[in-house]
Design a protein around this nucleic acid. Structure first.
Lengths: 208, 208
DNA sequence: GGCTTACTTTACCTTGGGTACAGTTCAGCA
DNA sequence: TGCTGAACTGTACCCAAGGTAAAGTAAGCC
């Protein structure tokens, strides 16, 4: 990843726009985050905004790409920590899920919510590139957990047949659903609890 | 000039507005469903719209209330059918979940998505009444499934302690998450599969 | 025949997402 | 020291969408 933009003056305006937009979009949604509000926040003019992003869609695209990179880094680190202490795939996965639940619980306030859902439910505001990026993000989670589940199933063949893709997708399902629930009920404890229930399902699915 | 085929005076205009709005909002989101589009669709003027609803929020409120009633009726009927054939609470719940998965699978195209999430992720567009209605809808699901789970746990005491509220909330979590996933991947088969996985968790949780 | 319901008509306001394009400021290089 | 290009500013204007305000009108009901 090379930094192609090495501007002279305010070198971080683009980044500050992205930061502010991310916060605002997660808090209020994309449609309700106005360009006016963003430029007021970072102290530039409307023309300045359009210098950095060709339109609002372009902003969404940049935001999503950055988010995906960040998310991947966090999950890589989480699994690294989970694998550090043992080499059993099932234990590793269970530890990772516990760490993940704890991580989600530590965000004391209601979790800002996931860009995936935010983008999904405002479909027509975005172009094909944004939709593709969104889908790719979900598929990355499927691949990550599917690989883990394959390793687990190999070591601990399940007593009943299990749909491993569906089981892998359930992670994303629970995160997205848990965030919606947490938002609807204004209760941030829901998501971590749901993750632990998923952990339970994994444990029971591969128990000897 | 008078158009005799479309009488000036109709009694179902409000209903037709709600129907069209529901379809449009589920397909495109609330923010992107314009009043202009709705009035063009039902053939009235803008003032006509504001005669029926004081503003867009009022439309959302009416829509949500109608949706909640409809949803409740559907679930009542589903559980009635599930209970018809047996009187074991666990079997009844498992049958209901299978029926529910089948129901979701039968909506061939990508399911329109749930109003709860749609409303959640566009928070600031709505007032307190809408948020309260939304939360109430989720709580209704919790109560419904919590009652079922209580009956199951009474008959089949779980071997390990189970958080029954979280387990009840997991239904909503999976529906909301499954819809988001289905939308992101344009794959309507995801939600039914996730519901069946949940069914599996229930089965395993109360297995003797 | 009068009241109510269900609108229409006209006119105007504000916010927000742009487009267009000319001008300005400053860092770094040659 | 002056030129270039990146990062903007400023001005001006367009269109869509969500309203607001208020008067008028046609049809149905008692």
């Amino acid at each position: 990843m090379l930094d192609t933009t090495t501007p002279r003056r305010r070198t971080d305006t683009r980044k500050r726009l992205l930061d502010l937009a991310e916060r605002s979009i997660l808090a209020k949604g994309f449609a309700s985050t106005s360009i006016d509000e963003l430029i007021a926040g970072v102290g530039i003019t409307k023309s300045g905004f359009f210098y950095h992003f060709k339109d609002k869609n372009d902003l969404a695209r940049a935001l999503l790409r950055r988010h995906l990179d960040h998310e991947r880094a966090i999950m890589d680190e989480l699994f690294r920590r989970a694998d550090e202490l043992n080499d059993d795939p099932l234990h590793g996965l269970l530890i990772a899920l516990r760490l993940f639940a704890e991580m989600m619980a530590e965000l004391e306030e209601v979790h800002p919510g996931c860009l995936v859902a935010t983008l999904c439910y405002q479909d027509q505001l975005f172009d094909q590139t944004v939709h593709a990026l969104n889908a790719e993000s979900v598929l990355a989670w499927r691949r990550r957990f599917r690989a883990r589940l394959d390793a687990v199933a190999k070591r601990y063949p399940p007593s009943e047949p299990v749909d491993l893709d569906a089981l892998a997708d359930m992670v994303s399902t629970i995160i997205e659903g848990g965030l919606v629930m947490g938002r609807a009920l204004k209760d941030p404890s829901i998501l971590p609890k749901q993750i632990l229930l998923y952990r339970d399902l994994i444990r029971r699915s591969f128990a000897r």
